[in-house]
């Protein structure tokens, strides 16, 4: 087994603004996790369990307070989450252009992709309207379509399949499945267990910042389901 990512004894805490930064909220504690190349891991847990914090640490957005994160040097990593990072005054098309350039494309290459992104989102004339006029479903669809541009070795997906109506969700899952080659490592956070059953080969249940259970998808999801 070749490792893609190793987290050893990870601890993470944040200052509580209400306590004038003197008290801290412990988001993760003593967390150990090894992820092999090509593995598809589903992360489950209640709100506040530390899933998004863990993804941000994996993505290198910020380091943990304690412990170490190791990632295979040659592997690229990206975090995709919906509804975040859009500029409300820009249109869907302009936000898509910005997202593409943010992901390293030249402006001319990005422009070539804009029509395809617009078609995928099914936003119609709203694609050229400011994002502030969008419903949450429309924002999610745009977020998913721009996120599909990512082409990294390790994909961290935060709730990205909760997109739009049933028809669009199926289309989104199909599009994502196309990207899941055997070499690509995926860590998927999702509330809907069905998505994890379909995409993942392993599940990790996070509870109050620590791993409660880690193993094959079915037993972990069953235990998680029975606990709630």
């Amino acid at each position: 087994m070749t490792l893609a990512l190793t987290l050893s004894n990870i601890g993470m805490s944040f200052p509580l603004a209400s306590a004038g930064d003197s008290q801290r909220h412990q988001a993760l504690e003593g967390l150990n996790l090894e992820i092999a190349r090509g593995e598809r891991v589903g992360l489950v847990g209640r709100n506040g369990a530390g899933k998004s914090t863990l993804l941000r640490i994996m993505a290198g957005i910020y380091p943990p307070v304690s412990g170490t994160v190791w990632r295979a040097r040659e592997l690229s990593i990206a975090l995709l989450s919906l509804g975040l990072g859009f500029k409300n005054e820009l249109t869907g098309r302009e936000n898509a252009l910005l997202a593409a350039v943010l992901q390293g494309m030249s402006k001319s290459d990005a422009r070539l992709r804009l029509s395809a992104i617009g078609d995928f989102t099914e936003l119609g004339r709203f694609y050229d309207e400011p994002v502030k006029t969008y419903s949450s479903g429309m924002r999610s669809r745009l977020g998913f379509a721009t996120g599909l541009l990512l082409d990294t070795d390790i994909l961290l997906l935060d709730e990205i399949l909760s997109v739009g109506d049933h028809g669009f969700r199926k289309k989104a899952r199909d599009a994502l499945t196309e990207k899941l080659t055997s070499e690509r490592t995926v860590i998927l956070v999702h509330h809907a267990e069905r998505a994890i059953r379909e995409v993942c080969t392993r599940a990790v249940w996070l509870e109050r910042g620590s791993i409660k259970q880690d193993g094959p998808v079915e037993p972990v999801l069953d235990a998680y389901g029975n606990s709630s």
Binding site: K87, E89, L90, E94, L98, L102, G104, K107
Partner: peptide, 20 residues
């Protein structure tokens, strides 16, 4: 890439502001 990004962000913001 850095300057391409800075320039794209600046120009898009200008367009958005003018539209407002």
């Amino acid at each position: 890439q850095y300057f391409n990004l800075v320039d794209t962000m600046a120009r898009l913001s200008l367009k958005a502001e003018a539209r407002r």
